[in-house]
Amino acid sequence: MAERPEDLNLPNAVITRIIKEALPDGVNVSKEARRAISQAASVFVLYATSCANNFAMKAKRKTLNAGDVLAAMEEMEFERFMEPLKEALEVYKKGQKGKKEVSEQKRKDKEKKADSENDKSREEEEEEEEERMEEEPEAENEAEEEEEEVEN
């Protein structure tokens, strides 16, 4: 639970990076502006949560789900986020599924070979697998950024 008010802030370094990625190269963002955007982001989370929760309550559910969040975006008139969000969710779900398959494979491997030498080669395989899975989301992000630029 949040014990201190700072616990409800988002990490400055990450927020700064996201801002820099959105703006053209070389734009200076004042410290005050960065702080304000960070606070705005926290308020956005609360606002979205409250909207999403209303949808869940209407449906007599206690757990917020993806549909509630998407409905909240629509209600908040951030329809422009819908497509990128749906795409990101697809990739995320695929990634999780992939992860499960990898751990399944790991378990099988473990059963087959128990000596330490094979352990090493397995670690390398895992690394490759991870890299392969990360390529997809990255491509996704690039596509989104392009879209964003065209729109504006």
Binding site: I19, A22, L89
Partner: peptide, 25 residues
């Protein structure tokens, strides 16, 4: 809010990033 499922949490996080970019731009 009592509980949030994984997908909803992921979507809210992603939406916040889009929001930060949109607000800044």
């Amino acid at each position: 809010v009592s509980s949030i499922n994984q997908d909803a949490l992921f979507l809210t996080t992603k939406a916040t990033e889009l929001f930060v970019q949109h607000l800044a731009l």
